[in-house]
Nucleic acid binder design. Structure first.
Length: 279
DNA sequence: ATCCAGGAAGTCG
DNA sequence: CGACTTCATGGA
């Protein structure tokens, strides 16, 4: 049978806090492919196929231990949703809408490069650039291309990154890839603010991209990435007028604390999916 | 043609 | 520090 390398399974029975479509389309991950009644997803060199049925989901994968960590299966999202409910009606509605979202545990280097590419860009283009990057520099694993190693990323030059459509971000990627290949380490117990400052030293990484790396790559949930969409959320949460995204992020983290990252993801998905610009 | 997209860097005050 | 401009690229 095809894809027999996906030889182990995880059965998900509680769909109240696991929705494949919501998890993959909520903006945290770019390398997924919708099939017939399933999604294929690649993170670094972990490959998963999510077969969804009416009352359960089966994850077929090449590494169940990594897959369990990747999908954050040890975290109780119903508890998180309960703690975030009743703070604001808009957030309540966003949680109902995206009840099956989970924050994936993705590879830090993959998040750094992916979100450098995301700056001032749109999602279809971001996905295309990353896909060409993996096809040309990543290892072919049974027809799936792994995300390139930091060594492979550092071996390519600026003209290569322009050739895959990265535009003016090509120079940022070249410089940052060299730092990554040199062995950038993120200490487990470093405070989030210090990690953010460390990340912002990287070329192409500003406040918002750093927060995305912190949330999706290092699972720091005491951050609230403010982009064009979540800046629209700010006003409707009744936090007053604010034009500076950096100050918006600070105010939002003051409000949601260690649950900021979750709140951000419910709100981002709700607004973007419904194109709610003027509420 | 002009505007927009999960913003960041460079410049100026 | 804070505000303002520029930066590839492709789809609407």
């Amino acid at each position: 049978m095809e894809n027999s390398f996906l030889n182990s399974d995880i059965h998900i029975k509680d769909l109240s806090q696991f929705d494949p479509k919501q998890i993959l389309t909520c903006g945290q991950v770019f390398r997924y492919y919708e099939r017939e009644n399933s999604f294929d997803i690649i993170g670094k060199n972990l490959i998963c196929r999510l077969n969804y049925h009416s009352d359960h989901v089966i994850i077929h994968t090449n590494d169940t231990e990594r897959a369990a960590a990747y999908f954050d299966l040890d975290t109780d999202y119903n508890s998180i949703k309960t703690r975030l409910t009743g703070i604001h009606p808009v957030l309540d509605e966003a949680i109902r809408f995206g009840h099956g979202i989970r924050i994936l545990n993705q590879d830090p280097a993959e998040m750094i490069i992916s979100f450098i590419i995301s700056a001032n860009n749109n999602i279809p283009r971001i996905k295309g650039i990353i896909e060409r990057l993996c096809e040309r520099l990543g290892e072919n694993k049974n027809g799936f291309f792994a995300f390139p190693t930091t060594e492979a990323l550092a071996s390519a030059d600026e003209s290569f990154y322009k050739s895959i459509g990265a535009g003016y971000r090509a120079a940022y990627i070249v410089k940052t890839a060299k730092v990554l290949a040199d062995g950038l380490i993120f200490e487990r117990d470093t405070p989030t603010d210090r990690l953010r400052a460390q990340l912002m030293k990287l070329d192409g990484v500003g406040p918002k991209v750093a927060d995305c790396i912190l949330l999706f790559g290092l699972h720091r949930t005491d951050v609230f990435p403010v982009d064009i969409w979540t800046s629209r959320v700010y006003r409707s949460l009744g936090l007053g007028e604010e034009s500076c995204r950096k100050r918006m992020a600070q105010k939002l983290v003051e409000k949601f604390g260690s649950l900021s990252g979750y709140a951000q993801q419910y709100l981002y998905y709700y607004y973007r999916e419904n194109k709610l610009i003027f509420i």
